[in-house]
């Protein structure tokens, strides 16, 4: 082993790079097994096999087990799904493993990732939300009559969710408001004779918002032995489901 020993400055940069990569991965919905795997792999490729990483869903701590120890912490406040960023981190990490980019360049390119935009225009995402709600409702209930109404209500719900989320910083309020509007619109539409079953319309329309994937990720984290992050993610998904369920029940209680 004639690995070049890194200077303290380079070790600091390595720890910062690992922190940033892990932070981006967790913020965009990766499971924790993959995050610690990526961090260990970056460190091994930089020639530091004795890097220690403690990864949870709300923060990461990384240090190098060394005489001139450097340890750093990153906190993670918000979690969302944006697979483009995960993909970019993955691609950069592969390039780094193949020695196509240096550590400095890797870190600089990671710093640009939070400014990446969306692949799709707003109307395309709106259309996707409408199709998702309509199709899911048809798959679950085999009722083709409510397809158009479910699509429209789902699109409206997603629109309100995005609008409230952009303006209000408190989490779970956006889900609550969107679910209330979805419930009220669905019930009114059935009363006006536009649809058959309010329940089917509501189930389809809340589908772009429900935390089904988060629940499954929580169980996956638990199975891999992340006994802190698995339950934390589960609680987050539970509160999100609570907000949706209470929002719809509010509409049901008001309009009966």
């Amino acid at each position: 082993m004639n690995e070049p020993t890194l200077s303290i400055k380079e070790k600091n940069l390595l720890v910062q790079t690992c922190l940033l990569a892990g932070k981006i991965l967790i913020e965009n919905g990766s499971e924790l097994n993959r995050v610690s795997d990526t961090i260990k792999r970056i460190a091994a490729n930089a020639g530091v096999p004795n890097l220690r990483a403690y990864v949870t869903i709300t923060g990461i701590m990384i240090s190098i087990d060394d005489d001139d120890t450097v340890a750093k912490i990153a906190e993670i406040d918000q979690r969302d799904f944006d697979l483009r960023r995960i993909e970019v981190v993955n691609r950069l990490s592969r390039k780094f493993a193949a020695h196509q980019i240096t550590l400095h360049r890797f870190y600089r390119m990671l710093q640009k990732i939070p400014y990446f935009g969306r692949y799709y225009q707003f109307w395309q995402r709106l259309l996707a939300a409408a199709l998702l709600s309509g199709m899911i409702s048809v798959i679950f209930t085999h009722d083709y009559g409510d397809f158009w109404l479910t699509s429209v209500v789902g699109m409206l719900g997603w629109l309100i969710y995005q609008g409230v989320r952009k303006r209000v910083t408190a989490s779970f309020i956006s889900e609550f408001v969107a679910a209330t509007v979805i419930g009220m619109v669905a019930i009114m539409a059935v009363r006006l004779g536009l649809g058959h079953s309010a329940d089917n319309i509501i189930i389809g329309a809340v589908m772009p918002l429900v935390p089904g994937v988060q629940i499954t990720n929580a169980v996956r984290d638990l199975i891999y032995g992340n006994l802190i992050s698995g339950p934390a993610r589960g609680i987050e998904a539970l509160i999100c489901a609570c907000a949706l369920g209470f929002g719809v029940s509010l509409a049901l209680i008001w309009l009966g």
Binding site: L83, V213, G245
Partner: peptide
Amino acid sequence: KMPVIVFNIPALVPLVPGGQAYQVMKYIAL
């Protein structure tokens, strides 16, 4: 040559228990 999560998470959507999770909270509130 992409991370596997790109294909798994969308593919899971017809199976995930999101609808049931929402029903739980609805019936608790009712």
